[in-house]
């Protein structure tokens, strides 16, 4: 099965990933992704009936710790890395664009 990823699908995945591509980028990325997804599809050849998926290689099971509240009190230090902060909060623009020309 050849993969069927086209520019429209790439746009859709980009919107899920909070990325945006220009038309030029789109025509560059689409064949690249298509070729890699073709590689992914070689896995179809392997019979994995009844094989349990492996999601971690750790040797630890059910690690517990005491539920103790700590106050690391690092707000000021943390906010220094925020692009915009005010009164101890991180500042972001309005969720809904009020200027009316949002896409």
């Amino acid at each position: 099965m050849a993969s069927q990823i086209d520019e429209q699908q790439v746009q859709h995945v980009a919107s899920l990933a909070k990325l945006k591509f220009t038309d030029a980028e789109l025509s560059e990325f689409t064949p690249q992704l298509e070729s890699i997804i073709d590689l992914f599809e070689t896995l179809e050849k392997v019979d994995t009936t009844g094989v349990k998926p492996m999601t971690s290689a750790t040797d630890q099971v059910n690690v517990m710790r005491e539920d103790v509240a700590v106050n690391s009190n690092q707000r000021e230090a943390l906010l220094k890395n925020a692009p915009e902060a005010e009164n101890g909060y991180i500042k972001v623009p309005a969720i809904i664009d009020e200027s009316g020309d949002a896409e």
Binding site: K18, N81, A82, P83, V92, S99, A102
Partner: peptide, 20 residues
């Protein structure tokens, strides 16, 4: 995502813009 740390784009109209 440009909110808590790292670089945020200047030209933004709304929160979605900040992310994308």
């Amino acid at each position: 995502d440009g909110v808590r740390y790292g670089v945020r784009t200047n030209d933004v109209k709304n929160l979605e813009d900040v992310y994308v």
